[in-house]
Nucleic acid binder design. Structure first.
Lengths: 220, 220, 220, 220
DNA sequence: AATGAATGAGCTTTCATTCAT
DNA sequence: CATGAATGAAAGCTCATTCAT
C-alpha cells in the first residue's frame, strides 16, 4: 500500500491544478487556510491573516472563493467528497481479495489505515471535526455522502463476516452504530483533543482496540 | 434518587441565588447565553444578541461578567466544578451499597444516569462539547478536575470488579481509556450531533452498549 | 509663618465641613479624586474608580456632585477661589511690614513661599495645571480671579520698588508678564513635568532664579 | 532663509508622500486629527469624529494607524524627530557664520525663529504641549532626543559667548535651565493658553525678552 | 488575474448617570 | 442620605467584502 497518494491536501491541490490555469496562489491560500483553521478555528481566523500567511493579497482570496465560508468549503468538501470514499475502497481492496480475512483482520486494517491517513492529514482532520461540531448542514451533507459511498463496502464486509459466523445476526446499521463511533472517537481523542500522540506503536494500540471491538460485538 | 436536582442550570442558578442579592437578571442572561451558545457557538454569538434575548441592557452583561469570555466561564465552570463530581458520587451510591453488583450493573447504571443527566442539560452539554473542541485550556482544566474528583470512584469500581474476576488484570488507566470514550461518544452523537433523539427507550439502548462494553473489556 | 494651614486640601475640606452635615464621605471622595486626577488625568479616571478608592458607592458621588465635571470643579475651584488669594496676602504680610525689603527680597520670599506651597499641594497643583491646559473656561475664570485678588498686592510691591529705583519705569503689566511666567514655569517643570524633585535646597535654587529675575528686569 | 519649508505638517506629509503610494486620505486624516486634538485634546476626540471631519470611513483610520494612540504618535513623532533638530541647525547657520554675533543676537534669532515656527505650526504645537503634560513617556523620549540633537548646537553657542566674556563661567546645563524655560513659557502662553495673539510686532516682543534674558544671565 | 486601499456594519467594552430600595 | 444594579450611548477596534486600478 503506497502512502504517497494518501495526503488529501496534495491530492486536492493536484486535482485543482488540472482544472485551473494558475493554482500556485490557490494552493498557497488553501495551505495557509488549513493551517490557520486547524490552529485557531474558522471563526477566529481572519482573511487578512490567511492572505498574509499565503503571501497573496486579500482581494485574491475573494476573487477565487467569493466568501470566507466558500473557502472553508473549498477546504473541507474535496476532503470529504473526493478522498473519503476512495480511501474506503482502498482498505477494501487491501483486505478483501484474499477472502480468507477474519472480521478481526478487517477491523485491524481499517483502524490502521485510518490512523495513518488521519495522521498524515491531521490539520485538515482537525478543521473538519471542529467545524463538524458547529455546522449541521455539514453533518447532513457528510452523512448522506458516507451512506451513499461507504456503507456499501461496509455492508459487504459485515455480510461476509456474518456468513462466517463471526458476527451476530443483527441489522448492519445496528452493528455499525456500535462499532463506528468507538473507532472514530479514538481518532478524535488522538488527533484533535490531545496535544501530542502517545509513543506506543500503532500495532499495539490496534490490538487493544480490535480485541475490544471484536469481543464486544460478537455476542451482543 | 430524585431527578429534580439534576438540572445543572437550575442548580448553578440557585446556588448563585444564595450568594448574591439579585439574580433574576443574571439568570436570564445565563439562560439566554446557554441557549445561544448551544445553538450557534460562542464565537458566533454576539453580546448584543444575548442582551436582547435576555431582555437586559448590554451593559448589564458586562457589569456582571466583565468580559464575554467570563460569561462563557460562568456558564461552563459551575457545570464542571460543582456538578460533575457530585453526580459521580451519586451513581456510586446508587450501585455500591449492595456490593453484589456486577460490573455490568455498574456500567448500566452509569450509562443510564449520564443519559438522563445530559438529556436534562442538553444545551449546556452542547456548549461544553463545542467549546471543549476549541479550547485546549478548557480541556486541561477539566481533565485535571476529572482526575482529581472522579477517578477515585471509578478505580474503586474497577478494583472491585477485578476482585470478582469480571475484568482482566490490566491497569485501570488502560481499561478506562477503552471504556470511557465509547460511552461518551454515544452521548456526543445523541445530544450534540443528532437533530433529535431516537425513539428507542433508554433501557434498550443501554442493553446494547453495556453488552458491547462488558464483552469487549472482558478478555482484552 | 505656619505651615499647618498651608495645605489647601485640608483647608478646603475643613471649610466644607462647616457648611455640610456629613462630610466624611465627601472628604474621602475628594481625596481619592485628587489623587487619581493627578496621577492619570481627569479624562482617564472613571467615577467607579473614584468610588472604589474612596470606599463609597458610585451613586454617592453623584448625589453630592451631580456630574463628574462638577467633581472636578469641586476639587479645583476652592483651591483657586479661596486659597490662592489668601496665600498672596500671606506672602505680603511676611515681607511688607518692614518696608526696608529690597525687590530681591520680595521675589525671593514669593518664590520660596510658592515653592513650599505647591510642594505641599503637589497633587492638586498637578490637576490644576493639567486641566488648565485643556479648559479655556478654567483659564478665563482663574485669570479674572487672579487679576481681582492678587494684582493689587503685586502692584503695591512693584510701585514700592519703583519708588526705590529698583525697577525701570514701565507699566506693571509689562513687568509682570516678564517675571511671572518665568517663576511659574519653574514650578511646572519641578512639580508637574519632573519625576522627582532635585536634591538642591530651595534657598540655593532661589538664589539663581532671583538673581536672574532681578538682573533681567532691572534695565529692560 | 525661506519660511515656506517651515510648516512641519506639510513637511511630514510630503515626506510620507515619498514613501507611500496613496497619501491623500492619510493627509486628510492627519489634518483632521491635528485640528481636533489641538482643539479638544486627544482623550476627548473620538476616532469617529476624526473620520467624519476627514471624510473617510472610520475603518480607514485603523487600517493606516492601527490604534488611536498610533495616530497620535504619527502626528507628534515626525514633528519631534525629523523637524526639530533640523530647525535647530537652521537657526545656527543663520547666526554663526559671521562669528561676530553677540549672545544677544543669537537669543534674538532663536526667539524670532521659534516664534515664527510655532505660529506656523500652532495646532500641532498645541497638541504636543497638551499631550506632553499628560504623558511621561513622551517627555522622556523628547528630552532624550533634544539632548542628542540640539544640545550640541546650544553648547557651541554658549561656549563661544563665554569665550567673548558675555556669559558667566557656569556649566552650560545650569545656564540652559535658566534660559530655556523662560523662552518656552512665553510660547506656551502665546500659542497654547491665549485665545489670540497680541498685536505687538514680534521684534518689539523680542526686544523685551532678549534684554531680560541677557541681563538676567549675565551676572548670575 | 491580481491587487490592496477603502469601506461600514458590527463587535466587545467602558462609563457617566439614574433610580428603586 | 446612601446604595449599587441597571442603563444605553458611545467608544475603540475588527473584518469580510468591494472595486478601481
Amino acid at each position: 500500500m503506497e502512502m504517497s497518494t494518501h495526503n488529501i491536501l496534495d491530492q486536492m491541490l493536484s486535482e485543482a491544478k488540472l482544472s485551473k490555469k494558475d493554482t500556485a496562489k490557490q494552493q498557497r491560500i488553501l495551505h495557509a487556510a488549513i493551517a490557520l483553521f486547524a490552529e485557531k478555528g474558522f471563526a477566529n481566523t481572519s482573511t487578512s491573516e490567511i492572505a498574509k500567511n499565503s503571501g497573496v493579497a486579500e482581494g485574491t482570496i475573494f476573487r477565487h472563493y467569493g466568501t470566507k465560508e466558500n473557502l472553508l468549503i473549498a477546504v473541507i468538501v474535496p476532503f470529504l467528497k473526493q478522498s473519503l470514499p476512495m480511501m474506503a475502497k482502498e482498505v477494501f481492496e487491501e483486505i478483501n481479495p484474499s477472502k480468507h480475512a477474519r472480521f478481526e483482520d478487517f477491523i485491524r486494517a481499517l483502524f490502521l489505515n485510518r490512523m495513518r491517513f488521519f495522521r498524515e492529514n491531521k490539520d485538515i482532520f482537525r478543521v473538519v471535526v471542529k467545524e463538524f461540531v458547529y455546522r449541521e448542514e455539514l453533518r447532513t451533507e457528510l452523512l448522506t455522502h458516507v451512506n451513499k459511498e461507504i456503507v456499501g463496502y461496509l455492508n459487504q464486509a459485515l455480510d461476509y463476516s456474518k456468513g462466517k459466523g463471526e458476527l451476530p445476526d443483527r441489522p448492519n446499521g445496528y452493528l455499525l452504530k456500535l462499532i463506528f463511533p468507538y473507532i472514530f472517537s479514538q481518532f478524535v481523542i488522538r488527533f484533535v483533543l490531545s496535544a501530542k500522540e502517545p509513543d506506543v506503536p500503532d500495532e499495539v494500540e490496534a490490538d487493544a482496540i480490535v480485541k475490544f471491538v471484536v469481543n464486544g460485538i460478537r455476542s451482543c
